[in-house]
Structure formats: C-alpha cells, structure tokens
Design a protein around this nucleic acid. Sequence first.
RNA 1: GCGGGCGUGGCGGAAUCGGUAGACGCUGGAGACUUAAAAUCUUCUGCCCUUGGCGUGCGGGUUCGAGUCCCGCCGCCCGCACCA
Length: 844
Amino acid sequence: MASRFNALKADAHWQKIWDEARTFAADDHSARPKTYVLEMFPYPSGKIHMGHVRNYTMGDVLARHRRMTGHEVLHPMGWDAFGMPAENAAMEKGVHPGAWTRQNIATMKAQLKRLGFALDWTRELATCDASYYGHEQALFLDFYRSGLVYRKESAVNWDPVDMTVLANEQVIDGRGWRSGALVEKRKLSQWFLKITQFADELLDGLGTLDQWPDKVRLMQENWIGKSQGLQFRFALSDGGSVEVFTTRPDTMFGASFVAVAADHPIAQAIAAANPAAAAFVEQCKQGGTTAAELETQEKLGFDTGLTAAHPFGQETGAGDLPVFIANFVLMDYGTGAVFGVPAHDQRDFDFATKYALPIRRVVSEGDKTAPDFGESEAWTGAGTLVNSHFLDGMDVVDAKREVIRRAEDATQPGGSWGHGTTVWRLRDWGVSRQRYWGTPIPIIHCATCGEVPVPREQLPVELPEDVTFDIPGNPLDRHPTWKHVACPSCGAAAVRDTDTLDTFADSSWYFIRFASQPEDRAFDRAVAESWLPVGQYIGGVEHAILHLLYARFWTRALRHVGLIDLAEPFTGLFTQGMVTHETYKAADGRWLSPEDVRDGKEIASGSPVTVGRVEKMSKSKKNTVDPEPIVDQYGADAVRWFMLSDSPPERDLEWSENGIEGAWRFVQRLWRLVDAELSSEAAPVTGDDIALRKLVHRTTAAVHAAVEGLQFNKAVAALYALTSAIEKAPASAERRTAVRTLVLLSAPMVPHLAEEAWALAGEGGLIANAAWPTVDDAMLIDDEVTVAIQVNGKLRDTLTLAKGLPREEVEAAALASEKIVRALDGKPPRKVIVVPDRLVNLVA
RNA sequence: GCGGGCGUGGCGGAAUCGGUAGACGCUGGAGACUUAAAAUCUUCUGCCCUUGGCGUGCGGGUUCGAGUCCCGCCGCCCGCACCA
C-alpha cells in the first residue's frame, strides 16, 4: 500500500542518527583520497536566509557525492562572528555583542541542521572565540616580525555614522559600504599589512587558477591594476621640478601640457600664494564622486603660468610645456602628476580641445601620419611612431623601451632623468578598526620602548566583557583597566592598542583552521597541508575581490613566514547566483511582503498591489521568504530539490510557490515509486529490461558528471527522466535494480528520503556511507542509432539504423526513404554528406 | 567611458565537437478515477495560411549544414571608475 513520505518525521529521525554517529566527521588519518568542499561561512546575523540554503545545498550535494565516490571529505561549518551588526544590536537593544552573536549562532545552527547538511560539526568554530582569534593574534605577530606589518600615519576613510575607519575597498562612490554615509578624510595612525609586497605573485597566481570563473580572475586583475611605464622628472621654470608617471613614454613628443592634481604639493604651494588658484583647487574638491557625476564632469584646468622643460628639448628642440592644475588628475595614483598627449589619450584630448592646446599626432593611425591630428577623438591604438625624431618608424612597444632606455642612461650629460617602473592600483591593507567587536591587535604602546608585541605566552589578548555602548566610539579606548598594562619590555606603564583587526582578517585563514585545530597554535602544518587547498569553494560573487584577495594574500604571507607550503588556498571557485523574488508595492508606495499578498491584492486591505521586478531577496524590499516555515511545511528534501532544480547554479533562482510545490510533488512521487517497488513482497526475479538497464547506466554517468561540474539542474533533469522511465517500465528484476540505483543517485540531493528508502530496502548501514553505483561503459553504447536525413540541410526523415553501418548502406537507406524520394522529386542528389551514426545530408 | 557576461516557447531552462532546436520542469488545455473536490494517472502544449512553411534579439557572411563560427547593430545584466 502506497504511503505518503512523512518528511518531518524522516528529517528529524535521520538527522539525529547522522549526528549521533558523527557520520560526517572527517578523518585526518583516512587512507581514502582527501577532498575539501567549503562554502563561505556565514555571518551570524540572526536567521539563515534562502541564499544560505542555496549555497549550502550546492556544497552539500557535492560533498555527499564525493563521499559516495570514495573520498574522505572535509565539509566543515563555522561562523564569521565578528563585525559591526553585533555592536549595532548592542547600541539599539542594549545586549552584549557576544551574547547577541552567540544566540544567533545557536538559532542558525539549529536551522542548518534541519536541512540535513552533511557537515562536520566537530570542527565548528566561531571567529569571536578567543580560541580562534588568539591564534590570529599570533599570526599577526609572526607577520609583524617578518616585516609584513607596519604602522603609518595616514589619511583614512572615516565613516562618521559607524565611527570607524574603512578600507578603500569598503568605500563605494565616496560612501561607507555599510552605512552609506559620506566618508570623510582623517589622519590616524594605522596598522597595515603589506599586501603590495605580493602584488606580482597575486597577479601571476591568477593564471594558475583555471578552475575559477574568468570573471573573478579579471576583477582581481583589475583590482591589482598593474601599470608599467616611465617615471621621470620635469624641470620647472621656477627652478623646481615635478615627478610624473606615464604608461606611454613612446608618445613623449606628442605632449602639449603637464597637469598636477589639485592636492599635489605644487598646486598647494601655488594656491597658497594665488587666490584664483586657491579657488580652483577648492572647486576641484567640490566635484562629485558618483559614477554619473564623474562621467559628465568637464575636464577643468588652471594655468599656473609655470612651464616644464621637455626632457628631449635640448637635443630635439621640443618646446616647454605649460603646467596646469587639473581636476582629472588624482593625487593617490602614480605621482599625482601627468603629461598630456591629446592625440593619444581621450582625457587629454578633451582638455586640449577646451584650452586650445596643440594636438599633435605621434602614432600613426592606419595611413594617417600627418602631425595635424584633425580627428574627433584620441587614437589610443597601436601604430608606428611619427613626428617623433629618433623614435620615428618604431612601433609603440619598441618606442616605449627606447625612451625608458634613454631616460635611464647614466652616461648622458646630466645623468639619468627617469626610470622604468611599475605602478599598482592595489594599496596596502589597512587593518585597524576603531571597534570593540573584533580581534584585539596584540601590540602594546610604551613611551620608552615604542611598539611592543604582546609576548606569545600572554596570548590571547581577550576582549573585556564589561563594556557598554551607550556612547559612540570604541569602548576599548575608554576601558578603565583593560587598556592600561605594564610594558612587557621595560615594565613601565603602557597602553594596549585599542583597535581591532578588520574582520576580513578573520575570514582570511578560517579554512586552514577548519583543516587543523590544535590548541597551542593556529594549525598543524602537516595536517593542514593534507587537506588544503580547498578543492571546491562556493559562495557569492560579492566576495570576488575583497575576501578572496585577502585570503590569497594571507595564505602567501603564511608561506612567507614559513608556516605552510601553499600558494593558492582555493583550487576551485564557484560563485552561485542569488535567490530572487517578485516585489510588491501597495498603492501608497509601501513595499509588501509576499505573505501579505494573495491573488494580486493586499490581504489586509483588499486593495490591488503593483507587482514589481524580480529582485534579490532583501529586507528593504520585503521580498524575502523565510526558509524555516518552508522547511516545516515541505520538509528539507523538497527545499533542497527546489534549490537545485531548473536554474543553473551560477544564475539567479526565482523563488516561487509553484517551484517549491513542484519539488514537493516530486519528492512524493519518488517515494511512491520507491515504496511500491521495495515493499512489494514477491519481487519478480526474472525478466530483462535492457533498455531500462542502459538508461540507468547512462543516468548514473550523467548525474555524476553534472554534479562534479556543479550543473545540478542537469542532474535533476536526468533524475526526472529516469524516474519517468522506471514508472512506465513493467515489473522485472531490472526494475528493482533501477529503483535502487535511483535512490543512490538522488541520495546527495534528497538524503532523508534516500535513507528512509535504504532502510526500507533492508540494505543495512547508511546510504550516506554507500558507494556510488558503477557504470558499465558497455551499457552506454547503443547498437541502434537514429540518423537524421536532410535534403539541402532541412530535416526530412529520421531512420533507426544499426550503429556503425558503412556509409554506402546509410546512404542507400536514406535514398530508399519514401519521404526523401518525395523531397528529391525523383532527381539524384548532386552531393551526399554522411556523418556516421548521426546524419545524412543530400544536396539536390 | 572601459572591461565582462547574456539574449532560445507563456515561464525557468536543455542542446560537450558546426550535424534531428526546444530535453527536463513550471504554467495551461483535454481526458480518466471520484457523488464531488484534492491528490494521482493519461495525453496535448514554439508559431502559421498544416502533403507544407517559419522559427534561437536584429542585419549580413562563411558552410552541404549555424543557437553554436565571423562582421556590423540593438537590448538587458554585472564589475570598475577620470588609473596617466
């Protein structure tokens, strides 16, 4: 008698068994090949959301699949538990950030468990535990001792709302990435990690990451931003000089002006003496920073009256260049000064047009070589150097080299005047944060000894618990006792560094700690190396730059200090799409939650709602769907199945009622099939069904390939097809085997149902530990093939023929077809193309 | 502006190499079962002027053959932001 699959009962039952048996605890000493599957660990914000469910379901299917294919799988979970929301909660609700965080962790852990993820909870960690961040402090000091950490007084991005310093990466369009407040500049003494020391390695390393999305590699490449060129000095007419950087030294003879940034020392000096210049400098600072503003902003300049002597002026007679202060030159890139070549740079072209400066062609564009430019936009492409004295006739690459060679030539009169150099967009990583809820920076400031690292035996430097958040600012900085300590070096009164580390530091090595967590140090090298690198890392594309770059840096820094032999932490990276939902608005413009809407009307008022576009689930647009009641209603397997169906994992998945109900129906359908087959008492032991057997083997191969390729939608489609075929198949021994195999193939996706079926079949043991079915390659080969018959490339007939039939016989069969005879109208074909076992094209 | 991606039925999407476009799912139609409904099952579901013709954003091209390759457009999405 067919029964319904009781998901809630089965979920709880099997989750308890997996838990008690520690089924998914990874064994460091296993003889099986090791594999490491990791999803980006969550920030414990309160509850899990659909994005988490999708992310962890994907990783889980891969992890379970790899278990079945004979791997020892490390699939851990933990908590990225430091960060500002905890302090915000403390300020708003008066709870301690630690209490708030730990409560959220408890809630979210329970929610994750209800989804039946094959996670190794024995390795769970939270970055806010001293047992984690204490080791981070030790690593920080290791970096410090090997010169990877330094302190610098610098202008920082100050977020006036969050009262903290932000990294450049955390400033978006001049606003704080979390608060959205306009960022101010402040001078503070900050700790920096020397990520730029690894700039070349981090850039070159991207080339080895062939299992990363091209998009992410490109984003990192652009972020690192390597530019090679010439840095040199212009002598100025007032006896001073200005240093400029250019990637186009080849265009030197096309220069018609020099421009410095508004906050360049030269501009500042001039502004101090000249009110008009001061006004212009002020005007530059007013400029907006948003995308639209920058795009439309006019190129503006102020002629300083100074001139710069062309480096080749003496030998070629090239004239002096006027020096401008310009709004499009940035102080924090290169040297804050440039020379302008209007013919070959669009900004310079715009500028020269506005201020009537010469526009002189020095690189040919096709057959255009005349010095009079006469074009409507700059030519930035390749070409041959023209109107450039000794460079004439060279290509751009050679000309660059030649100019740099001449600049560096120390034997010329006056010696060298410039050098080839590389400029990076990437900046050192400022890690100091004026916050409480983070890893304390383990340094003590002593009036006599200066910066003193906290001795190793005094680690961890624990956060004090007795803090309040009733006044803005950092509670550590005003803590009466925690802050004041004796200098470890001289014993005099000293103070702790009251800043904490950027939370991106915490997430830069957690994957190593998962692999190995001894008490007395950050990780055991041998054990960590036995698991790492992470074979498959899965997470949101929003971490494409910051987190992934910092983690890559941290890993290289660890190698630099000799703690691990690993360059790249993540071999495979997959960035999954978002979970989206329709948005709804009431007539008065309020966003409405999906729960408040039915049949196009607001339930409470009955008034019609506007259905907006499908967008990422977000609290602000109220289009979120809470996973917990969904799991209550449909069970974990249906939710998991829906997360994997239809949409390719890298694309967005639209949440819909129909979708989850369809998934639920499939779970029930699968159960009916399994239950009916496995619980029928007298199974037929005879009866072949070769077609079904072949489909089972084909599906096994297809699902394996799809799961390994993270193409879950394809695996799902294949499982649907197999299910339908089995349903239609008559009873046979083959059919029973097919059902058993179907259960195994779907086990990674619907593990609770699969365990239930496994038990029902009396297989013994857990299906979580069962082996993936083997594929008989002979079963993948058909002895008959369907051959398409085309006339002039149009399909006219299909024939079922023996596989491997000789060309002539295929052709003869094609010509014998009634439909083909009609299509050819009695005429013999002029040409016949035969693709063996696939297609015949008759050209009339 | 620069860089990248995408564009296939009513919808999500398949189509590994240039070789039968639309697998699989959703939605919808018809039918069976039922007193009835739900559930379930069967079946149909790209478009049209249906012995056939047209169809993968648009216009060209290469080819016996193009969703797939090339050239030129259009649209949408993502990232970066005056990077010298």
